[in-house]
Design a binder for these strands. Structure first.
Lengths: 111, 111
DNA sequence: TCGGCTATTCGGTGTTGCTAGGTACTGGTA
DNA sequence: TACCAGTACCTAGCAACACCGAATAGCCGA
């Protein structure tokens, strides 16, 4: 989609992935496909994997290896208690930002 | 406000500043104060100035020096045609992201 | 004269997503 | 058998962005 989205994703992609994991456990390849499906057409695979490593190291998710019939074993991530807490914080921060931006847009030129 | 906001601001702060300039011309110090007033309590001054330099170099704004009664001359920035076009793009990108995030939040756990 | 407010600039740092590869397992096909 | 596509994961190096801390400079009141 372009540079604009790329920059905006910094800081939000993490929340997006956590939100996905908040619904049900998932593995990297699956998450990437899901994102592409939803319009994030050019999210790099490497980006998602790197992000997963990060949130794992921060202790926001639990991991377990699950054999696949079609390739190497999958690393299935699931949101733990700490992750849910962090996701809650993320939504609050997002609301803060979204509200202010919506207001700016509403006000428009000359206010 | 913390690291979460900081990361989320990447890519959006630029749009925010452009939106402010879309309403009326302004200078750096003024913009910083405005942002702090609106809840962006810990936006660093240096950040705003660096951003203004960037958007000037990209030709999104026009600049003019205006003497101040209370200090060094102000650099007053105003959005030009190219800047308005870019701002429009920004809003579209923002909408794209905001819609998807809202949907994710609505869906919540288990969907 | 000194401190405080106005106003801008700059160098160095950390985080993040992207690029562009590579590894490895399975199944189908020439 | 050899090869390729699909599945699934990982990594090193890069660019962009916001932050921190400090410096510079002009004005004014105590």
């Amino acid at each position: 989609m372009g540079k604009l989205v790329t920059e905006m994703l910094k800081g939000t992609l993490e929340g997006i992935v956590l939100a996905i994991l908040g619904r049900r456990p998932a593995y990297g390849y699956e998450i990437t496909a899901w994102l592409r499906d939803r319009g994030f057409s050019d999210i790099a695979e490497g980006t998602v994997y790197a992000l997963l490593v990060r949130i794992e190291q921060r202790g926001l998710v639990d991991v377990r290896k699950v054999p696949s019939e079609k390739g190497p074993p999958r690393k299935v991530y699931s949101l733990n208690a700490q992750g849910r807490e962090y996701l809650e914080e993320f939504w609050q921060t997002w609301s803060f930002l979204a509200e202010r931006l919506e207001q700016l847009r509403k006000e428009g030129p000359q206010t």
